[in-house]
Amino acid sequence: MFLIDLIMDIIAFFCIYAIITLSLNFQQGYTGIFNLGLYFPIIVGAIITAYLPGRLAMVIYGLDPKLDFSANNALVLSILRSKLSSDPVTSIALLTLTLAAVAIVCYIIGFLSSYPALKLPADYLALFMLCAGESLRVIGMQTDWLAGGVMGITIVNPFWWLGGYSYYGMASFTIISTILIALLYHRLCESPLGRLLKSIRENELTAESVGKDVNGVKRKTLAFSFTILGLAGVLHAFLMGAVVVGGYTRVDFSFWPWLMMIIGGTGNNIGVFLGTFSLVIMRRIMIVGKHYFWFLPFNVVWFEPILLAIMLMVTLVFRPEGILPERSPKIRDYLRKVLKLES
């Protein structure tokens, strides 16, 4: 059972990080938008997940309005658990509503934040997004009623009706969502839009000179990526069963995905999958294995950023294009044409 739990855990976390790195690849690898603040929309998603479904369920089941979801978290959750355990329709409705709310909010935030952000040169855009993410993290940690503040908050599970298999239910939902999102990104990247994004990445001036609205496309790309990242935040929060905003750090939710993309291969979705998979496996092994280093006078968890740094350094020096570099569209198109002619 332990092995099944571990495998399920690895797959679920791989899926969360795959969604994040695919979004990053869509922004950086395809469009050239240098965004270091990936955790900004992820935190938005997590905060809405902490706030919305629990309170909605309280209204639906007519719980005492004097009870506060955040302040009386344990009591409210025990009541909601008993109700939701026998009500799959409401549970799924809560999940759908949360996803829809996050998608709408993140799209709007992405669209609005692009206005100041796109006025900046690429490097300062990255800093702006990084600071925006850090600011939201501070807000989330300081606001108790939003997501439990520093201590965090436990949230409802939309798969409680599966009894002892609720975690598997959520993990399966995450896997299915990831497959759908990956297919969506694949379709987008292979479509004429993908080529337009690449042309913007390669030379904005040229794209503009042939009548393309570069800023408009970038704005929509950023808003769309924000939406998907927000959904990753929802899935992560539901999977964890709790939201601690302080835990959404730049290292875990921005720098790690960047490393996954760089190691896998920027501009190549399969490479990104490969990079994500290898690093998620490595991280989970480190988390499981840290108990064997109890004798050290410090927490062995701090080796994780050092390891990340070393891997990043080695990749930058020896293989900056990643394991699977971006495929040349010329060769691919040529091969496709030849094969078509032959067939």
Binding site: F34, A126, F255, W258, E304, P305, I306, A309, L316, P320
Partner: peptide, 16 residues
């Protein structure tokens, strides 16, 4: 992008 990533390398090592 690579150069900024290089500064992140140092950020992570110092932070840890």
């Amino acid at each position: 992008v690579g150069l900024m990533m290089a500064t992140i390398v140092f950020d992570l090592i110092i932070y840890a």
